[in-house]
Design a protein around this nucleic acid. Structure first.
Lengths: 241, 241
DNA sequence: AAGTGGTCTAGACCACCAA
DNA sequence: TGGTGGTCTAGACCACTTA
């Protein structure tokens, strides 16, 4: 036999099937998957092969495994999602993260700028919703946040009555959009007029600017978020290995 | 039988043995390890168990595996090490990294400041070596870097005649200190006098400050590095999942 | 006690590399 | 051609959870 040209290991094929099912919502976030043996029987592979696929999913935070209980589709709960993508911490604490409070959000529906459309891979003139809010640390304003999302992915999101502290749980629970990866770019800039107003800092102060593209399980570019941080009392902390 | 109180899975014990041997230099960077079967026979476990330990080491970048060839102790070569810990990129390029050139380094032997001693877990009054250099991107000064290392870990490092572009390859090849993890804290600050001189930027310009603690395979705090970046043309890029 | 994930084994075969 | 890592299987037993 000639080798099959686009050969894929069995466990990879199983992995792909499981990802598709989760993406399509066949198993909802928080729900339990069938057991390893059940999946193995259904897909006609051995339990060890299913295991390898599930372990990969767990390593990517798509599922959570609990000995004795089962394998669950990962849920963007408040605390969980917060600590996964929110990387601000107090200095010199070896990465002990902060729980930020957030003020009321302000929504605006408008046409995407050229730059936003490019970053979000949207057609020119697409409608987006802009969600602005300020986050507090220890009761003080520390981060001004602007999230821009395609209206098409999140219809009527600007008419949600209460936006949660972590938008990603809303994306997931209401719109079935599962954020699994964020690409961030950090730079230092000077405070602009909006920063002075939102954060109450002096003109000319340094501001840490974080631009994030959030990617969904389907590879969609679901959100463009720009955070501007007053880093006098907090830092962006990350381990690189 | 009662359960053993501090039970460790076999593969974890194998993993620990292998880490210790690599840390002790029994297998040097770039050298090949014994095959899975050979290790399994020596340690009296199955090949699958060795495999799991080796896969874990590979996931942590401690070894590199090559089908048909063998398993090699990871080496901090120039390009490799550079792209692993150097996270600067051009904006909007989805993380395509930059290869920075570096100017001649200046070394100074001195006593650690209180802050440095605290961050490096050194006793008060310990001697350190400070290594300063400027990195260029596209021929322009972009990053001013200050590395502080304990003299005890790196004797006579200030008398090395040529410091490589990536210090970590020197730490590994000359001193046997293997950097495996870096903890970074980022903040935005204003340019100080030194920045003006080193980077040629205006006073009052925003500067991205990166403070990094580099940890060795033994858990030693091997280096405290402070980088100050002019982020007008480059950004710090990272994926968080 | 039953069911789940976690560990461990032994052995087969495949894909890749070097001599 | 022989040796290496990569895949896959089947089955045993352990540890943990829930009923």
């Amino acid at each position: 036999m000639d080798p099959i040209p686009d050969f894929q290991p069995l466990y990879k094929q199983v992995y792909d099937v499981l990802v598709r099912r989760i993406a399509e919502g066949q198993w909802q976030p928080g729900q339990v998957l069938p057991s390893e043996h059940a999946l193995a029987a259904e897909l006609h592979v051995s339990q060890g092969t299913v295991r390898k696929a599930l372990d990969t999913l767990a390593a990517e935070n798509l599922v959570q495994r609990h000995q004795g209980k089962g394998t669950y589709v990962a849920e963007h709960t408040q605390e969980h999602s917060l600590f996964r993508f929110f990387r601000l911490a107090r200095p010199n604490t070896d990465g002990d993260r902060i729980t930020p409070e957030s003020t009321d959000a302000r929504c605006k529906r408008r046409v995407a700028t050229a730059a936003e459309a490019a970053r979000l891979h949207l057609p020119k003139g697409a409608t987006v919703v802009e969600i602005k809010r300020v986050r507090l640390v220890d009761g003080k304003r520390a981060v001004s946040e602007k999230a821009v999302v395609p209206l098409k992915l999140f219809p009527e999101i600007d008419h949600q009555d209460a936006l949660p502290n972590t938008l990603y749980s809303l994306y997931q629970s209401v719109y079935g959009v599962n954020i699994v990866l964020a690409k961030e770019e950090l730079s230092a800039v000077l405070a602009n007029q909006s920063d002075e107003k939102e954060l109450g800092i002096e003109p000319g102060s340094p501001v840490l600017r974080i631009e994030r593209i959030a990617l969904s399980i389907n590879g969609e570019r679901a959100e463009l978020r720009t955070s501007r941080c007053d880093t006098r009392h907090i830092v962006y902390a990350i381990d690189v290995s």
